[in-house]
Design a protein around this nucleic acid. Sequence first.
DNA 1: CGCAACATTGAGACATATCAAGGAGAGTGG
DNA 2: CCACTCTCCTTGATATGTCTCAATGTTGCG
Lengths: 237, 237
Amino acid sequence: MEQVSVACATCAVRNQAICAALDSAELTALSRIRRHQHLSAGQTLAWEGDDAFVVASVTSGVLKLTKSLGDGREQIVGLAFPADFIGRPFHSKTTNTVTALTDTDICVFRRSDFENYASDHPQLERKLLERTLAELDRARDWMTRLGRKSASEKICSFLIDISERLSADTCIGATTADEFELPFGRQQVADILGLTIETVSRQLTALKRGGLIDLSGRRTIHILDRTPLVEAAETFA
Amino acid sequence: MEQVSVACATCAVRNQAICAALDSAELTALSRIRRHQHLSAGQTLAWEGDDAFVVASVTSGVLKLTKSLGDGREQIVGLAFPADFIGRPFHSKTTNTVTALTDTDICVFRRSDFENYASDHPQLERKLLERTLAELDRARDWMTRLGRKSASEKICSFLIDISERLSADTCIGATTADEFELPFGRQQVADILGLTIETVSRQLTALKRGGLIDLSGRRTIHILDRTPLVEAAETFA
DNA sequence: CGCAACATTGAGACATATCAAGGAGAGTGG
DNA sequence: CCACTCTCCTTGATATGTCTCAATGTTGCG
């Protein structure tokens, strides 16, 4: 939870995050109400149901957004990569738990400060709106995967998806789109896809045996043959 | 597809839809770029993947937003009730198919007209942002239901959910929160919950036999005992 | 009344979950 | 550098919930 002072001008996501809408003078004003925060892998920023005090932009790292179901069941309902916005403006309660999957740096605002600032800067709200609409699209694709795909289709479409997100320019750690390190273990893949850890493991093994992917490290995925993987993903939308 | 001229002042959702952000002078300007449109039950407004020409506000009726999976599989990823906004601003393609479930009236804008107008009216964009954030919350609850709930939990949480949405003040046709008419048949309930039509039918019959609900007409649901229904829904969030 | 669409019910198949055991990697301390 | 441990992952055997296929029942409409 260390707090660092870093200039926006040198920020890795300066041109991708919602602050891309602001000029340098506006950024200076914004920087007065923000602070930097580091989260270690596994650390939780906010709990579902708690009062929503803060919102943030991700500078580096990956986080998961989760919903819990009383008994241990958990569903990952979103992932936040660099430049993504997290938190719930205009609402008093946090709607999902936010946990860092890797070491993560975020740029944090008190929710009220952010809301006030945004009210005076429509272009910032516009960026946030575009980002939220895109996230909604993503959530709906994800719903289709959860509701209508078989375990193997789920795995394949997930691998395609994540390979693309990890190789986006904001993400480091991905060499090519075809070989990458997952920022999560098997249980989390299961929580993303609505499966059990054993099914995830079996499906990955099956893909490896089928020669479509290679698994070296626990979390390393190497896509050997993308075309059949895309076909097996039943990806239409 | 008849086009009617109706004043915004008398619009049923004047104070609930995003246009609640506008005063009457602004509304007059807005009314120059909008037109009213009627959709019969079953009619489709836009197809997933098509160019996104229009956006709209729902005045009356219920619509479904769907994703298709090549073979017949379909997932309903959203429902639009009166005052809800449909369409995808700031994006050239329609991201899901929009189909009327009941006879429906909508207030339609060419997407480009709407975007231009919205750019000059930040309070309109703000309303749209709030609505989109709420819709994202809803989508994520829905994901949890799809990914982690059993068939009977899915049905119970769905019934609770829909009874609340149908008794909202914008919706007619719901007498009390406890007795209401579903705006969809069994297949559509199945497409909402990621189940088959047979499983939906069996689960509803089981709830009826258990004395929790009563089924009179094909689409009429009467919640007899709400408390155990809520418990069986595993509703935490 | 009679048709057509929709809904229910049953029997059996199948995919995924569950339970249980064994293996592989990464980190730690000797 | 090796043994030790802990955690995570894989694999197997079995159970079970939901799907599939098929038949029958029901409702509303022309």
